[in-house]
Amino acid sequence: MSEQTITTEEAATEHETGGISIGRVGLYATLVGLVGFYLIPIESGLVTSIKTPTALQETFPFLPPAGSGITVEKWQIAFDYLAPGMVNSMLFTIPSTILCALLGSMAAYGLTLVDWRGQIAVLALFIAGIFVPYQAVIVPLFQFWSQYMQLGTRLSFLWGLPLLEPHYATILELIITHTAYGIPIVTLLFRSQYKTMSEEMIEAARLDGASVWRVYRRIVLPLSIPMFAVVFIFQFTQIWNEFLFSLTIIGSTNDPAASATLILSGLGQSLEGTDYPLRMAGAFITALPTLLVYVLFADKFAEGVQT
């Protein structure tokens, strides 16, 4: 490893104190200091969320409260507010993540492993789609769903069925919207993998008599499972965290379809001022699924970010 060489030589040139150079100590001190920088806002939020009003006034914001200053009351309140939002967020995040991954993988296959003229132009449109600011489409999008589609009315025959509720129309709108806007980045992620796939292997499969569809189904799909994991993790956090679509398509924090981020944005607002412990508790509850996914699959997430 390159680092190895550098380290050994560096150790030789710098002052040594018991085998560890001062330079290395400084390096690690910097890194640990940076950990503080990146974690303090989060840590401070966490300790604040369990403080009683008195403790909030009396303790430092980054120190945990003493025994009597601890309360989980705010977590309970926040949870009561957010629970329906969490359910709604799950309801649109999971289906759109799966749809995005499937459609993106198919698009990447059709645009990468099957060769045809004009492919690059189509591909460029896909990739440019990643970078289009949502602001540029948000008014037509709102128009489309609220004026033209009105899924709630169109699908009204469904709401009598068990387990179905009218606000699922909004959820469905969000699923479709998130899927559509997620396709470009997912296509790019899959394409980056498919580009490295052996062309000869695909040709071998075609000579073996497999159709374009069978090559996808039997060769490409099984080989993309690791990339599916990356995409699931990356898209799940992206869609869960999204706010602008929730704000415009759902509209109100009181809407039965309100997502977790939407409810959080209005949590703890009152005339007396901001209830910080409640907000912090709400922030953690909202962030919980993404935090969990991130902590468990940090490497996959990083891989998704890199591409």
Binding site: E200, E203, A204, A205
Partner: peptide, 11 residues
């Protein structure tokens, strides 16, 4: 066809 890279299906 037999390819230079063998092109076996790795999975």
């Amino acid at each position: 066809m037999v390819f230079q890279s063998y092109a076996l299906y790795p999975h």
